[in-house]
Each structure stands twice: as structure tokens, then as C-alpha cells.
Amino acid sequence: MEMEVEKINISAEAHPMTGGDGLYSYTKNSDYQRSVIHASREMICEEISKKLDIKPISSTSYPFRIADLGCSVGPNTFFAVQNIIAAVENKLQIEGLSSSGIPEFHVFFNDHVSNDFNTLFASLPAGRLYFTAGVPGSFYGRLFPAASLDFVHSSYALQWLSMVPKEVTDKNSPAYNKGKIYYASASEEVIQAYSTQFSKDIGTFLSARAKEIVCGGMMVLIMPAIPNGTPVSESTGGILYDLLGSCFMDMAKMGLTDEAKVDSFNLPMYLVSPREIEDLVERNGYFSIERLEQITNLTTPDVQTGTMHLRAAMQGIIGKHFGSEIIDQLFDRFSEKLADQSSYIFNARHERVTQLLVVLKRKLTD
């Protein structure tokens, strides 16, 4: 099997979360993502306990290296890292290997160069028992030397595509997505363009990580998803992004923004199903799937929380395309529409959306 990815810092679009620690920041508006990290903690600990090849890393002669890809600005990344370290230490004790010494831990925080690393490192836990480093760049390419990582974590990052599919903004393409900002209720050609881009991105991501993770090392991926067989147009994410798109079109009709700008704007996000991700991992061939779990028993957000979370994630990419002056009015309008439909969107939410936990292990041979 031949690796396809050798490029370092491959070109990819950046979609940083809102930095700082202000009212609309990701720091203040990522409780939902944090709840998924907490909900998956025991499952990850269980897989580390059962599946991680621990003997090669029991010595204190070199550190156990962890990378969090798409770390954003915290604090969620710190919770995820601490959970992993605690699980590894517990594994060492269970295996009777802690007497030879607990390895030092080296944690690499990765995100795009435009990420607010200043806020991230200013808020590092004071009592942390690990060394840190920042690694800027897209994870749709090589980031680390070969066989240099023992464990990789990525939460709420892989739903972001490396780029908007070119066809959806091409007026001469059958996949031209006029009047919409997402693929949820679009034509089959648009849906296929998004699916194809996601497949390419995941293949690139897995091949890059296969170079960087030691044989027997592990990787945990957490991402928003849709249940098998659920059309994205019926998923909560699809409905919310279509609702946001309708706000753009309302503002265009009122002359508050340019309709041509709306036509040329598409969200570079994809909601995968468990069956899709399973097929893509198996097609790539470098990792075995140790666990594929859907997390659904989460607290339903209210209208204000849902709006603030979406704004923290989206206002950067929206402001870059439309200008920051429309942000307040856009999300005020979105909040009003969401309130009108909240009983429908949120009450049946558990049936149309899921959070996906994927635990992978690097195969010993290619």
C-alpha cells in the first residue's frame, strides 16, 4: 500500500472559531462540544485500557506524544488532553508498568495559523503535568515527522472541509448552488459534490496521520454526524444551516447584502453518517476501527445557546465573505426564526442528529 500524502502544510481554507474570551467567543460558547467530550470520556478510557500498545511507551526514556488536531482556543482541548493522559496512566498501573516510571507527556496543539493561539496558551491549566507546543497548519497534510505520535485526538474539526467544492460556485456547473449556502436541501449534484470533497479530505487526513502515528498508536475522532439513512435535509444541522441561508436571502431581498455574494457563499461543512465514515476508513486501509459509537443522550440547547454557539463558529467565515457589519443583524434574524421553529427543531432533535465517536488504531503493517 502506497502513501499518497507527502506534502507539508498543504493549502487548505482556514475557518477559525471566534477568538478571545468575549461574549461571542468560542471560549464562552462551546459548552455543547465540551459535553460531548465529557460524554465520550469513559468510552475513550475503555478503549485505551483494552487496545493501546502500552509496553513500548512504559519507559521514561522518551515522552508519550499526544496531538490535538483542530484544538481551537480552549478550554475543551485541555479537558480532552487530560482525559487521555489519565487513561494512559491508568493503563500503566493496571498493566503493572508504572513501577518502571510514568513517561513524560508532550502535547501538540494544532490548528490553522489564523487560530487564536495567544488565547489558547494564555489559558493553559496552571497545574498541568505535560509539556506543550503549538503546531500551526492544516491537518489535511503532514504536520509531524514520521512515527512521532502515540495518540491523536480531534474533536469537532473534521466536519470542516479543506475547501468548498469548486462546482457549487461555478455558474456553468450542474452543481451550481444558487440561492443557498449549504447542500442540505440542494440538488443531487450539489450533494454529490460535497460528498466527494469530504471523501477526498478524509482520505488525505488518514494517510497523513498514518505516516505520523506509530504502529499500534491510536486516534480518536469526534464529529457531528447524521444517523444512517437520514437525509441531511431532515437532520438538525441541515435544517439550521438552511435556516441561516434563508436569513441571508431575506437580507439580500431587503438590499442589506448583495444576492450575488449569497450565491457565491457556501459553508464548507459536511455531516457524515456512521456507515460513510466506516467505508472511508476501510477504503484507506491504514487503520482498524476499534469503536464506532453514536452519542445521543445530550442536553438539548435553547434558542439563545444555539444561536450563540453557531455565531461563535461561523462569524469569522461569514465576516470574511460579507463584511462584519452584517453579523449582528444576521444572527438577530436567525434567532427570531429559530425561536419560531424551536419546538420542531429541538423536540425531535435526538432522532435526526448524532455525535460520532470513532476510535482507530494504526495497523502494525501497511
Rank of each mutant, 00 (worst) to 15 (best):
A87D: 03
L129E: 14
R311Y: 02
I57R: 05
Y24K: 07
G323M: 06
N90H: 12
Y241N: 10
K91A: 09
G137S: 02
N29M: 07
E189H: 14
S138W: 02
V232W: 03
S100N: 13
A147C: 05
K320P: 01
G22F: 06
G22M: 09
T196V: 13
L298A: 02
R283F: 08
K171R: 13
H153I: 02
S273T: 15
A146Q: 05
E47N: 15
Y156M: 14
G238H: 13
K320F: 05
D201W: 04
A87R: 01
I239H: 03
Y32C: 04
K51W: 02
P231K: 10
S264P: 03
I94N: 14
N228P: 10
T236Y: 04
T60R: 11
I10S: 04
S123I: 05
S49V: 01
K180F: 10
E47F: 06
L124A: 15
N90P: 00
M314T: 10
R291L: 11
K55W: 07
A260E: 15
E47W: 06
F117Q: 08
T307E: 05
S342G: 03
W160P: 00
I345G: 05
G238V: 09
L23Q: 12
D258S: 12
S233L: 14
M308N: 15
S342P: 00
F331H: 02
S233G: 14
G203V: 01
P224E: 07
A39T: 03
F265E: 06
G217A: 01
L243T: 13
I85D: 00
G229D: 09
T230K: 12
Y194V: 05
T27D: 09
P75M: 07
L120H: 09
H309F: 12
P56M: 04
F108D: 00
S148G: 01
V262W: 05
D258W: 10
F109Y: 14
I226S: 11
R333H: 08
I226F: 09
F322T: 08
W160R: 00
S49K: 09
L124Q: 05
E351R: 14
N297H: 09
F248T: 09
T300A: 12
E282M: 15
A86G: 00
C45Q: 15
S342E: 12
G238D: 10
L158A: 04
R349F: 04
M223V: 14
F331W: 07
S154C: 08
F108G: 01
T365H: 11
Q159Y: 12
T77G: 02
K361P: 00
S72W: 07
G74W: 06
R333D: 11
S187Q: 13
T27C: 09
A184K: 12
T196H: 12
N9I: 06
L240Q: 08
S207V: 00
A122P: 00
K7N: 02
T169Q: 12
S49D: 11
Y344A: 10
